[in-house]
Design a protein around this nucleic acid. Structure first.
Lengths: 130, 130
DNA sequence: ATTGATCTACGAATATTTTCGTAAACAAAT
DNA sequence: ATTTGTTTACGAAAATATTCGTAGATCAAT
């Protein structure tokens, strides 16, 4: 396994990953500018973090021009799943649906999204009937 | 607010909280024995952790007998909600339903649980129609 | 009342994560 | 060619979290 997703991201690293997943790719400055809105850290802090993440294999980067361009090296979905699993395990007594109920409870979702969820539930039920 | 839930639990602290939420209450040894199954740390480590958590206001304890009995001082639900919110924010592009879909996807749920979720979805829809 | 087992308290060592200062490279504008 | 601004690289400080050794208290059994 050379595609080292070996290391699990820290709190700060997750924030950066989140930004890059959304943007697709970006420079340190791009990321830092977004990060600044919700956090309060210097530019070199963000830089260092992203360098470390690159070493760990969490980010890819293009160094062909002076200003490097980064992008996530691990998939958003697999990371989400890992985090969810741990969370369900430690905090939701192992019950995924307990988590689902809690998540639906406090967040307002659009009708469209609700429909998507319903449809998905139906699919799951169909599968389980077999 | 004197009931200081000021400090947010660390990773290790969450594991302990999870155990105590499930058990209701327990001694250091109780908790340690469960923890040992999935982790690998000495008894005094668990002890120290729980003492710190008590200082932080994360745990209550009964010291009336030699062997102290601990229980969680913060509610499972509010903690779940906090963690969910952060997770949705940083890793799920702010979309709760994206999280829900992902959670439903990889975890097998019982028919009963699925019904509960469906029912809940209907309730939400009713509310939003107004 | 001595031994042995178990507990708490405490302090400090380790490990990990986060932060930032400083220097050197580079490019654009004066 | 010097200044100005922006970048990376590097190292190390600072902050946090985790781990554990050791000492003293307590209790039960010998």
């Amino acid at each position: 396994m050379s595609t080292a997703k070996n290391n699990k991201p820290t709190e700060s690293e997750l924030e950066i990953l989140g930004i890059l997943w959304e943007k697709g790719s970006g420079t340190v400055r791009d990321v830092h500018e977004i990060l600044e809105k919700s956090k309060d850290a210097g530019y070199t802090t963000t830089l260092k973090l992203m360098q470390i993440m690159h070493e760990k294999g969490l980010l890819k980067r293009d160094t062909s021009s002076k200003t490097h361009v980064y992008e996530a090296a691990i998939s958003q979905e697999s990371t989400q799943q890992q985090l969810l699993n741990k969370m369900i395990d430690t905090v939701f007594n192992g019950s995924a649906s307990q988590l689902v109920l809690q998540a639906l409870g406090n967040h307002r979702s659009s009708q469209e999204e609700l429909d998507k969820i319903k449809q998905y539930l139906n699919e799951i039920e169909q599968q389980q009937k077999k």
